[in-house]
């Protein structure tokens, strides 16, 4: 490769990375500047999780089910983050007038979305950790960290696949107006149901659980539960290693698809004049 070409590639990579940092910056710094989010984003969502815990207690469920709810409740934070702070974010940015600036800047929309993901992960992980900690302290949930390395690996691959899916969604949301809000809203409870956030997904039966596995959190959550609880494998849907393999495949597919989808949708949005449209 010629020196000039290499310099251009290096500059492109640098710009990509700088864009990620720049978009993640306001989310991370904003969270540190204004601490009130800790109350709203950790304590209050915990109350909803607690309702499901007490429901299981009311029907005298075995204690491992309380653990399932706590882990599921913690992972809802990531799904909500993908829906509202990533997919629908381009709609909010369009509304606020930022989207045109993103497009006009000499940077990639994918880098901007990755920056959103990195910044969002910080806040979301705090919320998830708070729910896990509360589950341990308030409900006496016992977690096993025997397979912590595999657990961490599963989590990272799940997040890669999930945020890849989020980027695909974001490209579709680029074209939407007011319906973006409703579609995000619609994708909450049905996904909690299909992915088994509050019960083992295998309870849905093989075919439904298999179809739901297209959503990365289904298999990610199932694998993490199997690794976190001694009785987890009895409640698991597939073997953990197989689930990790499928998640790697999903991550590759979604991240690649998001690149094509973003390019296509950006072009279409430009042609149809949707980037500056503010249909409220």
């Amino acid at each position: 490769m010629l020196g000039r070409e290499r310099a251009e590639v290096n500059r492109g990579v640098e710009l990509f990375l700088r864009t990620i940092v720049a978009r993640a910056y306001p989310r991370v710094i904003g969270a540190n500047r204004e601490k009130s989010w800790i109350f709203f984003e950790t304590l209050l969502p915990l109350l909803s999780v607690a309702a499901y815990v007490f429901f299981y207690r009311a029907i005298q469920a075995p204690e491992e089910y309380i653990g399932l709810v706590v882990v599921g409740g913690a992972m809802t934070a990531y799904w909500l983050n993908v829906l509202w702070s990533m997919s629908a974010q381009l709609y909010w940015d369009k509304d606020a007038g930022n989207l045109t600036l993103y497009i006009a800047a000499p940077s990639s929309l994918m880098a901007i979305l990755l920056g959103m993901a990195v910044g969002g992960l910080f806040m979301t992980t705090t919320r998830a950790v708070a729910i896990i900690a509360a589950g341990w302290l308030l409900f006496g949930v016992q977690f096993s960290l025997q397979y912590w390395a595999l657990l961490l690996l599963t989590f990272i691959i799940t997040m890669a696949a999930l945020y890849g899916l989020g980027m695909v969604f974001a490209s579709v949301f680029l074209l939407w107006g007011r319906e973006a809000w409703h579609i995000s809203n619609l994708l909450q409870e049905p996904i909690y149901l299909a992915s088994g956030f509050y019960f083992p997904v295998k309870a849905l039966g093989f075919w439904v659980a298999s179809a739901a596995s297209l959503i990365p959190l289904t298999l990610g959550l199932d694998a993490m539960r199997q690794l976190l609880f001694p009785t987890g494998p009895t409640l698991g849907f597939l073997d953990v290693q197989l689930e990790i393999g499928i998640l790697v495949g999903l991550a590759l597919i979604f991240v690649t698809a998001s690149k094509f989808a973003l390019d296509y949708m950006e072009g279409r949005a430009k042609q149809e004049g949707r980037l500056t449209e503010r249909r409220r």
């Binding site: 469920a61 075995p62 409870e189 909690y192 149901l193 956030f197």
Partner: peptide
């Protein structure tokens, strides 16, 4: 329906 089905399945799984 999805909202209520979450509880229905939780109930079915246990009872």
């Amino acid at each position: 329906v999805a909202s209520v089905m979450i509880l229905v399945i939780m109930y079915w799984v246990i009872t």
